[in-house]
Amino acid sequence: MPTLKRGLTLAATVAATLLGLLLVTFLIGRVVPVDPVLSALGDRASAESYAQMRSQLGLDLPLWQQFLRYVGDVLQGDLGTSVLTSRPVLEDVLRVFPATLELATVAVVIGTILGVPAGVIAATHRGRWPDHAIRLLGLVGHSVPIFWLGLMALLLFYARLDWVPGPGRVDVFYEGMVDAVTGVASIDALLAGETDIFWNALHHLVLPAAILGLYSVAYIARMTRGFMLDQLRQEYITTARVKGMSETRVVWRHALGNITVPLVTVIALSYAGLLEGSVLTETVFAWPGLGLYITNSLLSADMNAVLGGTLVVGTVFIALNLLSDLLYRLLDPRAR
């Protein structure tokens, strides 16, 4: 029974959070100095057609009714129409979202591959130079503007060293050559059997994903270090050492094995952060994802697109937060 009750509480919390998000986007939409009636009819609308359009858009209703209408629309998948592309916002968002997902996923993999070992090494060398070096690197990672780092990386690795291709997802002459099945450029190329395009897409992915991944390295390393220090203090570690087990096995097998659960939640959380952080990275690398979509819409005051994009990112963000919570409960018997 307590499981059911907890499940209900969780569901209620998520529902309230989503409703809160909707309220915020709704209110932001209300503050905009753009008159939605005029933008639908044009400046020379007569008073009569103005009033008609106003009631058609539901703007003569009390605010709370307008909000209910808005929630109803969103629940039916209607995020309005983008002024810029004149397509439904939901369609646009679904088209560009896989690119962001691709970028953030590779970035979180990079962050994990680098961050977890860094955290373990910092913990086993506590107070000595590797610990300080990793801490300092983390501080640097937290202090550098990511869009600037991206620009400088393009300058160095693309313009000067020519190690990576320039901005975009594939080279220009490859663009549009494979059908967008999944929307993930590299996977689509594989599905079409185009290995050249696949390698090209991966080449394009490396730099932006590494830059974005660096952001999560610092966080993952710091959390890993903390978890590891807790484990290394435990008596079972001493026992294992007394039994003559090699230090490598003690640290990387026993201690690290026991922090998998909290680590998974940390990684899920940083994944959520990366989805959001991709906005600035995408702008720098001309990566055609949700971030670029939102910023382009911002600059042309396309509020439907901005709010729709915000809503989608927010929902995924909340879902990942929830997922990390659920994973923790699922994987750790003590939390059940």
């Binding site: 998000l21 932001i28 989805l275 959001e276 939102i294």
Partner: peptide, 23 residues
């Protein structure tokens, strides 16, 4: 509860949306 809800929002994206609305 309000704080938890606000804590679950993506900050940067919301800041973007706010600025978009306010100018």
């Amino acid at each position: 509860r309000l704080t938890d809800i606000a804590l679950a929002f993506p900050k940067l994206i919301l800041a973007l949306a706010f600025v978009a609305a306010l100018g």
